[in-house]
């Protein structure tokens, strides 16, 4: 299909693209400002706000905390979500539809409702302000995304492959790790990526569950935006955007390489 592109279409595409990307680009440009206020266009060019970010223990501590929580969420959420997806796709039991709806509900219930509910329960249980409490909350938010992705790849999975593995001498556990898991890996990896982003980006629930010791990056950013607005924020936002883009490109490359083998 080598069609001549329509000029009007090109203009429309560029405009829509600009509309979507321009705010991010503006923030990126501002982050290299040498002035001390957020201003566009910036007064001069420097990387002083990146230095200020790295020098500030408040920022680096929250990055470290966010990373620990996100990685824990990925491990827990991907593991549990994959098992749950197996149960939903393979299982035949009473109330399967209801269980599915409940587990997937964090995707549709407003975050503020979940946040308030969790806060009240966590205070009672003494989990409010703890890192593992935060991990548990993020995991419950991440699981639906893992389930949706893994279930999609399980739908297309030929179960004869598992029967073949068993027939050839693999028990249930080795069948899972040698045959099923490698083949649903694209779905699991996509689920893990979503789990990471869910935890890494989460503001609302995290704000309710945070304590001075346990503050994730988005929580600190939110507070910072409300109190002082200096270009450190822009520097941070730029770094986060770059990280996200790198992750997404990485995931695409991994999937493409995986596909080529088949």
């Amino acid at each position: 299909m080598n069609r001549k592109p329509n000029k009007g279409l090109i203009v429309a595409v560029v405009l829509v693209g600009l509309f979507l990307v321009a705010p991010t680009l503006i923030v990126m440009v501002m982050s290299f400002s040498s002035g001390s206020t957020l201003k566009f266009p910036p007064e001069g060019l420097s990387i002083r706000w990146y230095e200020s970010f790295i020098d500030s223990s408040q920022w680096t501590r929250s990055v470290w905390m966010s990373a620990k929580i996100a990685v824990s969420t990925v491990i827990l959420g991907t593991g549990l979500g994959t098992l749950a997806a197996l149960g939903f796709v393979r299982g035949r039991y009473l109330g399967r539809g209801i269980v599915t709806t409940i587990i997937v509900s964090p995707m549709v219930v407003p975050a503020i409702v979940i946040a308030v509910g969790m806060y009240m329960v966590y205070v009672r249980w003494g989990m409010q302000g703890t890192m593992w409490g935060m991990v548990a909350a993020h995991t419950s938010l991440a699981i639906p995304y893992v389930i949706v992705n893994v279930a999609a790849s399980l739908q297309n999975f030929d179960r004869n492959l598992e029967l073949a593995a068993q027939n050839l001498g693999a028990g249930p556990i080795r069948t899972f790790f040698r045959v099923t898991l490698p083949l649903i890996m694209p779905g699991v990896a996509a689920g893990a990526l979503f789990a990471f982003m869910t935890s890494w980006d989460e503001v609302i629930v995290s704000s309710f569950l945070a304590s001075p010791q346990v503050r994730t990056l988005p929580v600190v950013m939110w507070d910072a935006v409300r109190t002082l607005v200096d270009p450190t924020m822009a520097a941070l936002a730029t770094m986060l955007t770059v990280l996200t883009v790198v992750l997404l490109i990485g995931a695409t490359v991994v999937r493409k390489v995986g596909m080529r083998k088949r």
Binding site: N160, A164, Q166, N167, L168, A170, R178, V179, L183, K261
Partner: peptide, 30 residues
């Protein structure tokens, strides 16, 4: 006796070859 302990070979209708393994790895799997 579970299937993996029966020592009975089977060829499936649509082959059921493991797509993530080479032919040699498939044959060596059992």
């Amino acid at each position: 006796v579970p299937p993996h302990k029966r020592d009975i070979g089977m060829v499936f209708q649509n082959y059921a070859l493991f797509p993530h393994m080479t032919a040699a790895e498939n044959i060596g799997f059992p």
